[in-house]
Computed example of a mutant assay.
Amino acid sequence: MGVLENKSRARLFYKYLSKVYDRINPFVWNEEMRDEALELLDIQPDDRVLDVGSGTGFATEGLLRYTDDVHALDQSIHQMEKAFAKFGRNDRVRFYRGDAERLPFKDDSFDVLWSSGSIEYWPNPVDALEEFRRVVEPGNRVLVVGPDYPETGPFQYLADAIMLFYDEHEAQRMFEEAGFVDIEHHIQQAAPGTPRAITTVARVPDADGGDEADAGAEAEVEA
């Protein structure tokens, strides 16, 4: 487990990173990448959207282009204060301070869930993904952006020591274990040579259990 896959250390890290976050973020996750990811979700004007790990509000700003019903959750008050300055405390966005692994919402509370730049700090990613599935309406989608695992050995050792980096196979495993279906992965990159992001879009199974039945039928055919 990386040094920042610890909630108290991550909060301390962001206490200082929040001061410069909006200036350095575009080098690894810029507006073009965010907007490409947003298009994958097909957000409708009346959708109620949750932004988990909302930070300074970079993704929140993009979500507001699609719907006025945006809710943002983060564990770092220092990051949230930067977002308050952009949107007000409860004017355009409803803010919550909380934990991705224990979301303070009822089942099926949201139509869409977005999370970017947060999964790499979760000690138990599958627990958080199960929470995502719980709070999103059956049949609807979530999108999670995290850091793609480096291809070369030295960078892999560094990545493992810092926080969670993962590839498509690991992303598939985590989302399947959390109970999602129709899982797809997209690799995004600001420029050649810069860190890559892995963007995963997945769907919460239908409430009638039809997805599980379909999956079972498919497995039977393949066998």
Rank of each mutant, 00 (worst) to 15 (best):
M1Q: 01
V3M: 08
N6D: 14
K7Y: 10
S8T: 14
S8V: 13
R9D: 01
R9L: 12
R11T: 06
F13H: 12
F13E: 08
Y14A: 05
Y14T: 12
Y14K: 00
K19S: 13
K19E: 15
K19A: 13
I24E: 08
V28I: 14
V28D: 00
N30D: 15
N30H: 11
R34L: 08
A37H: 05
L40C: 03
Q44Y: 08
D47M: 07
R48E: 15
V49G: 09
V49A: 14
L50T: 03
L50Y: 07
V52P: 09
G53E: 01
E61Q: 14
G62C: 11
G62V: 05
Y66K: 15
T67I: 09
T67S: 15
T67G: 12
D68S: 15
D69F: 14
A72E: 01
A72K: 04
A72F: 02
L73P: 11
L73W: 09
I77K: 13
H78E: 15
H78T: 14
M80Y: 10
M80V: 13
K82I: 14
K82T: 13
A85V: 11
K86L: 07
G88E: 12
N90A: 11
R92K: 14
A100Q: 02
L103I: 01
L103P: 11
P104R: 10
F105R: 02
F105S: 06
D108W: 00
F110K: 01
F110E: 03
D111V: 07
D111Y: 00
L113F: 03
W114I: 04
W114T: 00
S115L: 08
S115D: 02
S118M: 09
E120P: 07
W122G: 06
V126P: 07
D127N: 06
D127K: 15
E130S: 13
F132D: 08
F132V: 06
F132S: 06
R133Q: 06
R133V: 01
V136R: 02
G139A: 08
R141G: 06
V142E: 10
V142F: 04
L143D: 05
L143R: 11
V145C: 13
V145P: 05
G146I: 03
Y149M: 10
P150K: 07
P150H: 05
G153C: 10
F155P: 03
L158K: 06
A159L: 10
D160H: 00
D167C: 06
E170H: 04
R173D: 07
M174G: 11
E177L: 13
A178H: 04
D182H: 04
D182E: 05
E184I: 01
H186C: 10
I187S: 01
Q188D: 13
Q189D: 01
A190T: 15
A191T: 14
P192V: 04
P195L: 01
P195T: 06
R196S: 09
T199F: 03
T200K: 08
T200S: 08
A202V: 03
A202M: 09
D206N: 15
A207F: 08
G209W: 07
G210F: 11
D211C: 02
D211Q: 02
D211T: 02
E212S: 11
A215D: 14
G216Q: 12
E218M: 12
A219P: 04
E220G: 10
